[in-house]
């Protein structure tokens, strides 16, 4: 799969997503596509509702209204989507893969079945467990099956040992990629901040996702770490073929690696397109200029690049 070829084939189609908290409308009738094999960025001023969109996609919030269809495997016909929507079920397997309606799935089902993984704005590692353990826990579902739901595991069956060795191999492969192999046996909470961010991404990748959702992955990183992050994300896109949806404030990350950008303001989409398009969209400039004075110069400078 070539990264540079623009693909319009969506992996996730969000339609008319609305989320209300009491009287407050956090997300209002939002529709956008996340393209398969690409990096899509969701940007917007603080409080625009980006994290809410994320929480809806990953099932931590139940949206008030709207449809979020995830196509795993390959492109799906509208007919297939309509069939699931009209059925009481939450997913449908087709010849080319499956359609999942994320709004009908609970958080852990979205990760386990629809294969959408995520990271968190405030890093959520298992701090008291080692780096390696974090990556093994991420492979829980298939390992637990391999352990015969613990029955084979408790007697130390060879099949389980083999599966576990395989899981360790995958974990070590990811540790090599994020440069933390030497710290595999250290508690995750003892890592520096930047390493924790990368470890959280590796942990999410160990679940074998088709779509990776990153909530401000560059927050708190220094420029060198940001550059490393860019490389990592590009390698995930190109090497693993995982589509990425990310929320980010750091424009150097967004503009450099995104194939596609969606801009939110007050829960509504104000722009949608390639980085070049966004850079020149007067609505986007106005949104950023209008919100926070100290961000103005910064944002302008970023957009000029």
């Amino acid at each position: 799969m070539s990264a540079s070829s623009p693909s319009s084939e969506p992996i996730l189609r969000v339609e008319h997503l609305t989320m209300r908290f009491g009287g407050l409308i956090a997300v209002n009738d939002l529709s956008f596509d996340v393209a398969r094999g690409q990096i899509t960025a969701l940007i917007g001023p603080n409080g625009a509702g980006k994290t809410t969109v994320f929480n809806c996609i990953t099932g931590f919030y139940k949206p008030t209204a709207g449809r979020m269809a995830l196509f795993s495997g390959g492109v799906q016909t509208d007919h297939a989507v309509e069939t699931v929507t009209n059925s009481p079920r939450s997913y449908r397997r087709t010849a080319k893969g499956a359609v999942f309606l994320l709004e009908r799935l609970a958080d852990s089902e979205i990760a386990a079945r629809a294969k959408v993984a995520r990271t968190f704005q405030n890093i959520r590692l298992f701090t008291g467990m080692t780096v390696l353990e974090n990556l093994i826990v991420a492979q829980h579902n298939w390992l637990n099956r391999a352990s015969g739901y613990s029955l084979l595991g408790i007697i130390g069956a060879p099949s389980f040992r083999k599966a576990e060795a395989q899981a360790v191999d995958l974990a070590v492969a990811w540790l090599d990629r994020i440069g933390l192999t030497g710290r595999a046996d250290d508690p995750a909470g003892a890592l520096p901040y930047g390493d924790q961010r990368r470890l959280e991404i590796a942990r999410a990748m160990c679940t074998g996702p088709v779509l990776l959702c990153l909530d401000e992955p560059a927050a708190g990183l220094n420029p060198r770490e940001s550059a490393e992050l860019n490389e990592l994300l590009l390698s995930i896109r190109d090497g693993n073929g995982t589509s990425i949806l990310l929320i980010e404030h750091d424009m150097s990350v967004v503009m450099e690696i995104s194939d596609h950008i969606v801009v939110l303001e007050y829960g509504t989409k104000i722009s949608d397109g390639t980085p070049d398009h966004i850079r020149n969209d007067p609505k986007v400039i106005a949104a950023y200029l209008g919100v926070e004075d100290e961000e103005v110069g910064e944002t302008e400078a970023e957009l000029e690049k």
Partner: peptide, 11 residues
């Protein structure tokens, strides 16, 4: 350690 992270990993 973290229930929310567990759910995000499909547990």
């Amino acid at each position: 350690e973290d229930e929310i992270a567990c759910r995000s990993l499909g547990i």
